[in-house]
Every structure is written in C-alpha cells, then in structure tokens.
Nucleic acid binder design. Structure first.
Lengths: 149, 149
DNA sequence: CTTTATTCCTACTAAACCAATAGAGATAAT
DNA sequence: ATTATCTCTATTGGTTTAGTAGGAATAAAG
C-alpha cells in the first residue's frame, strides 16, 4: 500500500511539474489545492528536497520547484523515497536487498522467485512513467509510453 | 510490503501443496519446518480455512490439507486474504474499490491511472501463478507460465 | 470412558509505524 | 524592522503488526 505520505508527495510533485519552469510555488498553495495537511506537506517537501528532487528557496517570495526536468523524475523514484523499496519482500529488492532470516535456500525459494517477478512488473510501470508522461502540461499517451518501455 | 502473516501463509500453503493429495499435516510440523511461530501459524491456518483455501480436521490424527487442487490456488488469492487488495491505493483496486476523499476528478487523476497500471502489472503475475506452478512436486517452467498467462 | 492429540477461539500485549501537530529557528525580500 | 517563507526537532494519538496465553471443542486410541 502506498502511504498517505507517498500519495501527497506524488500530488505535490505533479503540481510542481505543471508549473512553468523555474516558477516557485509555496507549500500552503500546494496544501490548499491538493487538500493535504499543511504541516505534513512541509515535512514531505523537505524530504524531497534533501533527496534532490525539488529545489527550495527560503524567505519571502520563496517556495519550491522541481530540481530536474519532469521527464527525468519517475513515480518509482518518488515512491522509494517516501515508502522504501518497491519489492513486496526485502529479499526480492534490487535497490535494498536483505536476506530472509527464515529462508533455507534462497535460490530455490518459490516465494522469492514470484516476488522478484512481481517487483519487476511493478518497476516496469513505476520506473518508466515520469511526471512529464502524465502531467497536464506535457501529457503523453500512456499506451505509447507503455510500448516504448 | 508483504506482511509476515502473508509470507507465512504462502509458506504453509506451498508446503501443503507438496504433500500427496489428502494427507493431513499438523500445524506444529509446518511451524517447525518453515520456522514460523506456532501459535501465529495456527491463527493463519484458521483464517485460510474460513476462507475455503484449506480443509482441516480436528482431534487426534487431525491436521490440514488444501481444499482445492494446487493449480487452482494462486498467490494473489492468498495474499488478498492475508493483506487485503493488491492495488497500491484503494481507488485503483478491482476487488475492493474505494474512492479517495481528496480526489477532485477521479477520471483525470494521474496517480490513479498509474496505480491502475501498477495493479494490473502485479495481478498479471500474482493472479496467474498457482501453487502448482512453483511447488517442488509439480514444478512447471516459469517462462512458459508467463507466456501462457 | 479416559487419555491424548489436535484444531478452534477469544483475549491480550509490546513494539513499531503512520498521520499529523506544535512551535521555534533560519533566511530572504520588502 | 517586518513579514513571509522554508527548516528543523519533538511530540502525540491512533492503528497495525507480530506475536503470546490459555482454554474450549473434537476426535481418535487405549
């Protein structure tokens, strides 16, 4: 399950992706528009900033904007920052593998094999859909995106 | 993330799938063999029984066995029972849809569209891999399974 | 009919995590 | 100096997870 935090992060990033390049948007604007709790959103944006996905400026007339072009930020990237690995089980994660303590023979583990395939299936969507692919400003056809990936 | 409960359920079901048809296995045997806490496993098996995936018999010489052929029980079925819907977000679930309170226009929601595709990707694996597909007794080739599905 | 092995069921608990809030500090524009 | 904004730390209430405890019901075996 996607946490609220991840969902709010996606909403915020999509809103930033719709803005003209370089324009700064304030946290309260995003909170109002996207109906997310203001202080909670602040924490989320701070997190996204620390991870290099958004740029921020303090003080009057400050705000947030994307730190990279929208076509170079994927859903998977955002979700991993907020919720951790995509894989349903740590032993099937590419980005943060961890062995199962209770596993007799990992190479033969049926659960792991199926979860690897599940992870791949999820990643084949989430790591290939960028903000630009779906944002209102620069909408591209989803089917062609899928075929290209 | 798959909960421990779901993981243990999969382990138990896979072990049952490996047994000769109709042979009853006791909960402590499964717990020992699969290294899962005994009492926790009891609760899980009870749940699986109530949902019609396993058959149980009480009393001496009792135990558990699959209630259906192993090729008619999928990973998705088990995971949904233990952890709920596959979809990362309720508004993208086929089996237990729920609208987002904070959504302005569901039809246009980019997050929902991507999560629908993610759900489909997950389901294309989990709803098409059965216990028989991966269990030691009746192993089938995963690639051919994938192509067939 | 008693003993024993098993599933069934309810209740409880400790720890972790989630969703959010509070309040003060730092910084930049006006 | 004032004000608007991001930055940071701490705290909180609620929920979920991962179990544990203990007994009731049932069925087989002696």
């Amino acid at each position: 399950m996607l946490s609220k935090k991840a969902k709010y992060a996606l909403k915020a990033m999509l809103m930033l992706a719709e803005q003209p390049e370089g324009l700064l948007i304030q946290a309260p604007d995003i909170a109002d528009r996207q109906k997310v709790p203001g202080k909670f959103l602040e924490a989320i944006l701070l997190d996204l900033k620390r991870r290099g996905l958004v740029h921020s400026q303090r003080g009057k007339q400050g705000g947030y904007c994307l730190a990279k072009p929208a076509d170079r930020i994927t859903f998977g990237e955002i979700i991993r920052i907020m919720d951790g690995p995509l894989a349903p089980i740590p032993c099937a994660s590419m980005t943060s593998y961890r062995r199962c303590a209770d596993c007799r023979d990992e190479a033969a583990c049926a659960i792991r094999q199926v979860m690897l395939r599940t992870r791949d299936a999820m990643a084949s969507v989430l790591d290939h859909v960028s903000l630009a692919d779906v944002s209102a400003g620069t909408h591209r056809d989803l089917v062609s995106t899928a075929l290209a990936g």
